[in-house]
Design a protein around this nucleic acid. Structure first.
Lengths: 206, 206
DNA sequence: CCCGCATCGGACACCCTGTCCGAACTCACG
DNA sequence: CGTGAGTTCGGACAGGGTGTCCGATGCGGG
């Protein structure tokens, strides 16, 4: 087996390119009409390939859905990582984190609704779609945990069980994102992020 | 058309009974394996009726799903209404509200996961399943709004835009419920409710 | 020029939905 | 007791989706 590296690499690039092509279409259609309402025929047609070709790249519908989620996961992490290092102040990081996620939703609300729906499927057949979403949650949770620990260390956050605090913060963010994913005409992300962040910091206390 | 009241009433009772029989089975199966993974055949078989008979009671799969959600909605409202009048103190009402919802989840976690999944479907075909869930949200939101207004009136809550405050509180509760619906071995609802409530009241502030 | 490879397109078996209808059963009424 | 209305059953049916398979086609590199 001779190296033949460049050729094989090219093939792989092409393969990835086509894969992404299908994923993009699937993500759009899933987002627009829901994962259950789009047939593989439609995806294939819209992507300009034969249905059987789609099955060359993805074993089945589930795997395609998982690939869609993975793509979104990566974009989300990129978005957040970008702004993460710009400010080490915990409260600011929190606000940036929230703003980043809201912006990601705004960039493709349909896609995020897709994620929410998949969230539902997770608890179901148990299929591997769940693992994709669990990864996202884990990554975000880690960021929150770090940020909280920093805040406690410098005395700006109340010191309670870190796991509980992380969970509660995460829940608030999750709720905020869910609502926004459904809202037709959302307010500016920066403003919402500021409100959510303020609420997390102070709650209803006078 | 003679009155014949008692007979017709009886028929209606029987009809409702059978309907509920199917709904119970459907709710269980939907909860266990997800709404998309259960066929009408299975539901009918498990309920001990012919598939065609199910279609006598429900026009289609969607209507059956909606009926399942409506049932859960009513149970939830009953649960909450029960404890609502026991204490007029806003903070206590909030905690009771949260506890009530957590208990409902614990009573039938599978069912709540079903609701979450349907939440996803809402944004999809747009079918009337959404209206069922929207009703639930509305009812809860009204309770929260009342409670918040009381708290502000008596000076125990910060006075901000009531809509925003209601929304933020609702988001926190929504997140907490979502997490709990997925947790395998949750802590006592009362304890979790207290934590969530405390977080809403004070946030991270020292 | 020819081989390998990706793609195509269509046939296939299987499953699910929603509709329909005739047959059997139940039960209240005359 | 007989009759008729209403209910259920079971199965047939069309339509549509999934996932598999395979022969045909086209293309690019050696």
């Amino acid at each position: 087996m001779p190296p033949r590296k460049s050729t094989d690499d090219l093939k792989e690039v092409i393969r990835d390119f086509r894969r992404d092509q299908v994923i993009d279409v699937a993500r759009r259609l899933f987002g627009e009409r829901g994962t259950t309402e789009v047939s593989m025929d439609e995806i294939a047609a819209e992507a300009g390939v034969a249905r059987s070709t789609v099955y060359v790249y993805f074993a089945n519908r589930d795997e395609l859905l998982r690939a869609c989620l993975k793509g979104m996961h990566n974009q989300l992490l990129d978005d957040i990582a970008e702004s993460w290092e710009q400010d080490a102040e915990p409260a600011h990081r929190l606000e940036r984190l929230i703003k980043g996620m809201l912006q990601r939703i705004d960039a493709d609300p349909a896609f995020f609704r897709l994620a929410l729906m998949a969230q539902g499927s997770v608890s179901q057949g148990g299929e591997a779609v769940g693992t994709e979403l669990a990864l996202i949650s884990l990554n975000i949770a880690r960021l929150i945990a770090d940020l909280y620990a920093d805040g406690v260390a410098q005395g700006s956050f109340r010191d309670v069980d870190p796991d509980k605090a992380t969970s509660l913060i995460g829940q608030q963010i999750y709720g905020a994102m869910s609502v926004r994913a459904g809202e037709p005409l959302p307010e500016p992300p920066a403003m919402v992020a500021a409100e959510v962040c303020a609420f997390i910091l102070h709650g209803l206390s006078t």
